[in-house]
Computed example of a mutant assay.
Amino acid sequence: MGRKVIVTPHDPVWTEQYKTEAARLTSVFQPILVAIHHFGSTAIPGINAKPVIDILIVVKDITAVIHLIDPMAQQGYLSKGEKGISGRHYFRKGSDAHHTHHVHVYEENHPEIARHLNFRDYLRHHPEDAIVYSQLKEHLAQTHYSDPAAYTDSKSTFIRNIDLKARLWRQAQVEPS
């Protein structure tokens, strides 16, 4: 039985799960760690999400992550390499059918860092768009219950639109008119 797409209402426990895992990961990444962030839907209060904690780790040197594969395995993580995104190292925790945590590691200044954090922060500050995203996720989870790739692909247009809004919103915050 393959992975199923299940979204649930927001659970405040996700923040505590992130904090617990972040403390463990901080000890693994400490020599090269710049920052660690909770991102993705579990980091946005009030929206439906797959109950998988997404963690973004910023490091000084992405090539040094290769030396952390064994320590990450000791924490229950499987290294998946770049997994389609150049300059990223991706780790997954959990079984093939049930992931509990995803860790995305980037070297500081990689553009995906800002994109992920802008998306999260924008939806935290724009509940009307967060609700639309939540409803879309619920609909797509029902439509693509047995096809996680189709679920993800079907969100891409909405995500690109929010990415643009989020980038403009962030620029306005940095450079007020």
Rank of each mutant, 00 (worst) to 15 (best):
S95G: 14
L25P: 09
K93C: 00
S27G: 13
E21Y: 03
V7D: 15
D61W: 10
K50A: 00
I57V: 04
V34Q: 02
E21D: 06
P71V: 15
I62H: 07
P9N: 14
V7L: 14
S41G: 03
T42D: 13
S41M: 06
E21M: 07
E16D: 05
T15E: 10
G94N: 14
P9E: 14
D61T: 01
A97E: 15
K83C: 10
K60Q: 01
T100Y: 06
V34M: 04
V58F: 04
T26F: 05
A73C: 15
P31N: 05
K60F: 00
G46T: 03
K50R: 04
W14N: 11
P71W: 15
T63H: 10
G81A: 06
L25K: 05
G87P: 00
H102S: 06
I57K: 01
E16V: 01
T15M: 01
G94L: 14
G87F: 04
G76Q: 12
W14D: 11
Q17Y: 11
D61L: 02
T20M: 00
L33S: 09
A22F: 04
I69H: 01
V105N: 09
I32M: 02
S79N: 11
F91S: 07
V5W: 03
S27F: 12
I32D: 00
V58C: 02
G84P: 08
T63I: 07
V7S: 14
G40D: 07
L25A: 09
T100R: 11
Y18F: 11
H101Q: 15
Y77A: 06
E16M: 02
I36M: 01
Q74A: 07
T8V: 09
V65P: 02
L68F: 04
I66E: 03
S79T: 02
S41Q: 01
Y90T: 06
I6G: 14
Q30W: 12
P31E: 02
A64S: 06
I44N: 14
T20H: 05
A97I: 12
R88N: 08
K4D: 07
V13G: 03
K60V: 03
T63K: 02
A22S: 07
Q17T: 09
L56G: 05
K80F: 05
P12L: 12
E21L: 00
V65L: 03
T63D: 05
A23R: 08
A49Q: 10
S86G: 03
Q30N: 04
L78D: 14
I85L: 10
R92D: 12
V7W: 15
D61E: 07
I32H: 06
L25D: 08
V58G: 08
D96L: 15
F91N: 04
H104K: 09
H89C: 05
F39R: 03
F29D: 04
I32W: 01
L56M: 10
P12V: 13
V65Y: 02
I55R: 10
S95K: 15
Q75G: 11
L56P: 08
E21W: 00
